[in-house]
Design a protein around this nucleic acid. Structure first.
Lengths: 84, 84, 84, 84
DNA sequence: TCTCACAACTCCGCTC
DNA sequence: GAGCGGAGTTGTGAGA
């Protein structure tokens, strides 16, 4: 009422966002399909996800997390080399 | 034994997933851009997010209410679609 | 260097958490028992779960609607609590 | 209307469940508090969670997962020993 | 730093 | 009896 233009603008922004979110959902579904297909070909989906996630992380970052974990495990008397 | 894990197939799946995740990230960034643009036009991003989220949830809530109604009808031995 | 990780403290935290998680598991099992008992009394567990879940969500939805209303009022320069 | 007793019974079950879920929520909040306290004492919460989760799993189970992961990584030409 | 929404993992019931 | 699918729960990452 105070400014009809603002309403139109607002609607436009909302619609642009909703359109993009739909596209994003399509991609997400595609990814799920690929995992399902991999499973159908005998791959372990859980491990596959871990592989993808490992490839994303920087090596030093992962090493640092593992180092802290080892410190904690040692402090608890559970030896290192347990893996993460 | 010659090939405990089908490397080529695995690689293909991983690459398809990574490709899709890149596309997904592009869309996510686009969404961020739209929010930024809206902010530049004087809109409150927090409100905008709330509006989008609410519009997403409302149809879902509606469906849930219908689902519970159907369940009640079933529980009473009146199948769904019986009408009133 | 003598103690890179405070082992006693760490162990104490871990044990407190594990103790609490055990308690939590007991409660979860109790809930399962109640559902089983209800089933034994002829109730449909799926419906029952739906009822419980719906009763949980409704107050939350209500709060969310109020929140968005307040946000709109703020956006229009009318603080919350102004009334109508 | 068809059977008022069923309604009373249903209400009783729902209330018992809701009561238990409240207790469960209290415990969950307690666990969160412990993690927060640990954080205040300089511990890394993310790693701490991993420690607790590791203690829950059986060793052989973890070893098996790691073995599969290594197979996949080798198939992709990423050496083992990366950790999990 | 803290909150909050998204995504992954686990467990349960269901069906073949 | 086992795999499949869905729901609930937990963990992670992004935003304020």
């Amino acid at each position: 009422m105070s400014d009809p233009v603002a309403g139109d603008q607002l609607r436009a922004f909302v619609e642009r966002i909703e359109r993009l979110e739909e596209e994003k959902k399509v991609i997400s579904d595609d990814i799920k399909d690929v995992y399902a297909e991999a499973k159908g070909n005998g791959f372990d989906v859980k491990i596959l996800r871990k592989v993808v996630s490992l490839r994303k992380k920087q090596p030093h970052e992962r090493e640092e997390e593992e180092a802290i974990l080892d410190l904690y495990l040692q402090a608890l008397g559970m030896g290192p080399g347990v893996g993460m």
